[in-house]
Amino acid sequence: MDPGITSLAQAGGAALVALMASDAWQATREGVVGLWRRAQPHRADAVAAELDAGQAEAVAATGADGEEVLSELRAEWQGRLRRLLVARPDAAAELRRLLDEIAPQASADPPAVTQHATASGQARVYQAGRDQHIIER
């Protein structure tokens, strides 16, 4: 499986669930349903209903210390998004655009950093999420 698809689906599911109990929910819902309408029109109405049910669960869980419910919702939507992207890889660009629009509203926390590197031969790769000190002798 393409790690890019998995990563995009994870980010999408997390942002989607984070916004379910926010003021930005309606615009987020419309964006996600629109994505399905263009990628898999026959599933769009079912996805809209599933989003509404998930949003009701998220709102109830937010007020009742329901991190387990929110975690299950994230996993559920990550899986749905991953399956959509596997079936329709061309939808990845649209999902990225949607995430660029909604992700800043999903959290005030700094964005997660994902790093990927490939080295071959005698190459070296140095990556750090923050400070890095290298002493070679």
Rank of each mutant, 00 (worst) to 15 (best):
W77M: 13
R82A: 11
G79H: 09
L85F: 05
S71F: 13
D2A: 09
A11Q: 14
L85T: 04
V17Q: 07
D45I: 06
G121K: 03
R38C: 01
Q40I: 05
E101G: 06
Q55I: 05
L51Y: 04
I5Y: 10
G79E: 11
A91T: 02
V86D: 08
E72D: 15
S120M: 06
R130E: 11
V59P: 04
A93L: 14
A27R: 09
Q122C: 03
R82V: 01
R83M: 02
S7W: 13
R74H: 08
H133E: 14
Q122D: 14
E67D: 15
A24I: 05
E94Y: 06
A103E: 13
Q26H: 08
M1P: 14
Q10K: 14
H133S: 12
V47N: 02
Q115E: 09
T6H: 15
T114G: 13
L98V: 05
Q10H: 15
A61I: 07
T118D: 06
A123S: 10
A39Q: 03
R83N: 11
L84S: 05
V125S: 09
A108K: 04
I102A: 10
T118G: 00
V113K: 11
V125D: 03
M20E: 03
D2F: 04
L73M: 03
G31C: 06
V47L: 01
W25N: 04
A119I: 11
R124I: 13
A58C: 07
A64R: 15
R137S: 10
R83W: 01
Q127W: 01
E30N: 13
R88C: 06
L98R: 03
S7T: 13
T114H: 15
R37G: 06
Q10D: 13
A93G: 08
A9M: 04
G54C: 08
A53V: 13
G13L: 11
S120Q: 12
G31E: 03
V69Q: 13
V33D: 06
L16V: 05
A106F: 01
E50V: 04
I134R: 12
G66I: 07
H133W: 15
V69P: 09
L19D: 00
R38G: 08
G63C: 05
Q40F: 00
G4C: 12
L98Y: 05
R124D: 13
E57N: 04
G12D: 11
R130I: 08
E94P: 00
Q26P: 02
H42F: 09
S107T: 10
